[in-house]
Design a protein around this nucleic acid. Structure first.
Length: 596
RNA sequence: GGUUCCGUAGCUCAGCUGGAUAGAGCAACAGCCUUCUAAGCUGUGGGUCCCAGGUUCGAAUCCUGGCGGAAUCACCA
């Protein structure tokens, strides 16, 4: 039984033995004892004094004395209404020994929570991925892992936005200025090749608009009547009509993009169970709109456009189908949602999408409710903050973006330089070396992103490279490598901790206890991270574990410890720390190397 | 303008279901490698937790009102 449960149970008993009403669980507040006081766990006495009708000091003393009956509680002190409890060393020793033997430590027993669907990534096929997409991908992948650790059967899905006017722009640009080049003939990664065409289009288009405006046309009219945009619209119309030539071009160019995306996805280490394409779901969306019209949930205006009135629910009217019958963003999202529900019948459908679309998801959820789907409530938008530059928001059209592939390359380069400088990987062959460098470089990048609360906007300064020291991925990876090295050495020296714990005759040092207590938190944090869909909680714990372990490691000999009991405990503690780091980092999608 | 989110050290971030004297890292400075990996450890300096009220035994945390910033309110996605 966990120490928190033991204490809570005992406190309840204290009340019942005095025929007092048992206090509500929320009144029994336990927290980690602050460093400056003696003890491991602290009970906040204030909430209980009303029931006890005693002063905080008095109540603390009495509860402390009572808790002393528990063999796990060794001592206590009361300071200003805080009851600091000293947990007996044997509790921590038992905990470490038992947990070290449990390969599943920290995770839910087995798939127990039903199927859950997580959508993330969802790129457009007209430009390469940037840092914002990196955050999305890392969050989605990590959240999927965390939900799995909480016992869910997780399906990772991607929804590729592969159709629409923006795709037609790149197609048109290729026809006009592409000179039949391909990514391989140009020696450019496919998604970048297509992205460059998109930029080319936007530049030419802007020039046209400017010229028209100079000729006296109104700005808005110029934007919609410029020859280039008319051509693009015409191409979209042809595409929707299934024109063979346009379709062939579309398939070819999207193919280039997918080849490029695959490379980036592999670098990031993300993968999907199923990929949906908007080109395959938007018709399903249109069908739903027709259905809604039939049910009078939606209505159409004279020009043929279809709307839903959400003013009763505090929102506005929302367009669902254009007057020309083509679909908008929400149309295909309705279709996708219904298709997924049919495909998986999941208890929850999470969408990892930026907070700029909060309104969109509010609307989506309301429409599904209005349509009367009983699963409408299973949709949940995991809204995350933007990645901003010191100068503000990233803007692809202005070239103010941090390109994903670029950034990854830079991370690997820096990791390589650092490793060479430190001479850590001397003597390894090239493949091993580059694998470790990749692990470290990507570890630095991923941790940098994931340690931040997903809900918050974050700032990335390209001028300052991502750190490899301090509160960073490599710091945690390093701690793991150290531990693995230590354990390997123990094996070589034939040191194997005995099965029985020899815990008589010594108690744990502060550092030993601190590390143990943090490892003890791991299952709690995994559960919280699952509820909050927040990898940052895991990241923060990993950092604390690594920092605390390094202090322990600095102060205590392990293999050189002469007392066998102490040595064996420290080895077990090290092994469990290594395992927890390995597992925790895996939840973040970060590898923990054997050496570095 | 309406709605939503945010404001903590020079910088990047923790802490926010109310709990003790608000914590880390980076940057700066000063130390620690003949001993299990120094990508480490130790120390010093650094704060009006945006402001003002309110609730409470207790507020960075909750409420109200300001100020500042962001997103959104498209027949864009």
């Amino acid at each position: 039984m966990r120490i928190e449960e033991i204490i809570t149970g005992a406190i309840c008993r204290y009340f019942t033995e005095r025929s007092l009403p048992e206090p509500d669980q929320s009144l029994i507040q336990l927290q980690r004892t602050r460093k400056e006081f003696e003890g491991d766990i602290t009970l906040v006495v204030f909430p209980l004094i009303r029931l006890l009708k005693k002063s905080p000091a008095e109540a603390g003393e009495e509860l402390g004395s009572f808790l002393l009956q528990q063999p796990e509680i060794k001592d206590f002190n009361v300071i200003k209404g805080f009851l600091n409890l000293v947990v007996d060393s044997s509790y921590w020793m038992d905990f470490v020994t038992n947990s070290a033997a449990d390969h599943n430590y920290g995770f839910a027993e087995s798939p127990s929570g039903g199927t859950v669907l997580v959508e993330f990534s969802s790129p457009n096929t007209n430009k390469p991925l940037h840092l914002g997409h990196i955050r999305n991908n890392l969050l989605g992948y990590s959240i999927s892992k965390i939900l799995e650790a909480n016992g869910k059967e997780v399906k990772k899905v991607n929804l590729v936005n592969d159709r629409g006017i923006h795709i037609c722009k790149t197609m048109l640009a290729w026809q006009k200025w592409g000179e039949n080049a391909t990514p391989s003939s140009a020696g450019v990664k496919g998604d970048h090749f297509v992205g460059d065409l998109y930029v080319k289009f936007e530049n030419e288009y802007r020039t046209e608009v400017r010229q028209l405006a100079e000729q006296g046309m109104a700005e808005e009219a110029a934007r919609s009547e410029a020859p280039l945009i008319r051509e693009a619209r015409e191409m979209l119309r042809k595409w929707e009509a299934g024109d063979p030539g346009v379709t062939r071009l579309w398939e070819m160019m999207n193919g280039w993009v997918y080849e490029g995306f695959d490379v980036t996805y592999r670098s990031l280490g993300v993968s999907f169970d199923k990929i949906y394409y908007e080109s395959e779901t938007y018709n399903a969306g249109k069908a739903i709109v027709r259905e809604g019209l039939g049910k009078s949930v939606f209505y159409s205006k004279e020009d043929g456009s279809v709307w839903i009135d959400l003013t009763r629910r505090g929102l506005d009217e929302k367009l669902l189908l254009r007057s020309d019958g083509t679909s908008v963003y929400i149309t295909q999202d309705l279709g996708t949602a219904v298709m997924r529900q049919q495909d998986y019948d999941a208890e929850k459908m999470y969408y990892v999408v930026g907070n700029e679309q909060d309104y969109h998801f509010k609307v989506l959820s309301l429409i599904l409710q209005e349509m009367g789907y009983d699963w409408a409530g299973s949709i949940e938008h995991i809204s995350y903050g933007m990645v901003e530059l010191p100068s503000g928001k990233m803007k692809s059209r202005e070239g103010k973006v941090v390109d994903a592939d670029n950034l990854i390359d830079e991370m690997l380069e820096t990791a390589g330089e650092l490793s060479a400088e430190l001479g850590k990987l001397d003597g390894l062959d090239r493949d091993e070396k580059s694998a470790i460098i990749r692990t470290i470089g990507m570890g630095a990048l991923k941790y940098f992103i994931l340690k931040v609360d997903p809900k918050k906007n974050m700032i990335f300064n390209p001028e300052e490279s991502i750190d490899f020291n301090g509160n960073t991925g490599p710091f945690i990876q390093y701690t793991h490598a150290r531990i693995r090295s230590l354990l390997k050495k123990a094996g070589q020296q034939g040191i194997v901790p005995g099965k029985d714990i020899e815990n008589d005759g010594f108690s744990l040092t502060v550092k030993e206890k601190n590390v143990s207590a943090l490892l003890h938190e791991f299952p709690v944090i995994v559960a919280e991270a699952g509820k909050a869909c927040s990898p940052a909680l895991i990241a923060n714990l990993m950092y604390e574990v690594a920092r605390e372990y390094n202090q322990f490691y600095h102060d205590h000999p392990v293999l050189k410890e002469e007392d066998r009991g102490k040595r064996d405990f420290r080895l077990r503690l090290s092994a469990l720390t290594g395992d927890v780091i390995k597992k925790g980092m895996d939840l973040l999608g970060i590898d923990a190397p054997e050496r570095m």
